[in-house]
């Protein structure tokens, strides 16, 4: 039973670490803000969630302390992670951050230009 619990804890914390490292490497390697938003909003959300699950299992199975606060933290991360990525990429697009030259198609440009014309912003 202790071996099973240990395997579970080590697995979750290692997986979380892996995903966080990958998101850091992604922030370094990817070419522009929008592709970095992919790495930042997905990998770090799942990484931190995995580490929290590992911590939760550790305190539950080894110290016999059931802590629902950690579960609430996981839920809040789940809700706020994607919204943060969305808001940051939207704000930078509207502020005029240019996408990478390799970008193939840009439907958003037309929409943003239309929006700016309607509201009278140059």
């Amino acid at each position: 039973m202790t071996i099973l619990a240990n395997i579970l804890i080590v697995f979750f914390i290692l997986a979380g670490l892996l995903f966080i490292v990958v998101s850091a490497i992604g922030l370094y390697r990817l070419p522009d803000l929008y592709t970095r938003a992919h790495a930042a909003s997905k990998s770090s959300t799942l990484g931190v969630m995995c580490i929290l699950i590992g911590v939760f299992f550790h305190f539950w199975l080894k110290e016999n302390h059931f802590n629902p606060g950690i579960l609430l933290g996981i839920l809040f991360l789940f809700i706020t992670g994607p919204v943060g990525g969305h808001i940051m990429s939207r704000a930078s697009y509207l502020a005029g951050v240019k996408p990478w030259p390799g970008t193939v198609r840009d439907d958003l440009k037309i929409e943003v230009e239309k929006m700016k014309k309607e509201q009278g912003i140059k």
Partner: peptide
């Protein structure tokens, strides 16, 4: 994302679509 980032050659074709 893991496969994309750890791939030695970056094969990206980003696009915005509606």
């Amino acid at each position: 994302v893991l496969k994309l980032v750890l791939n030695p050659k970056l094969e990206l074709q980003p696009a915005f679509f509606k």
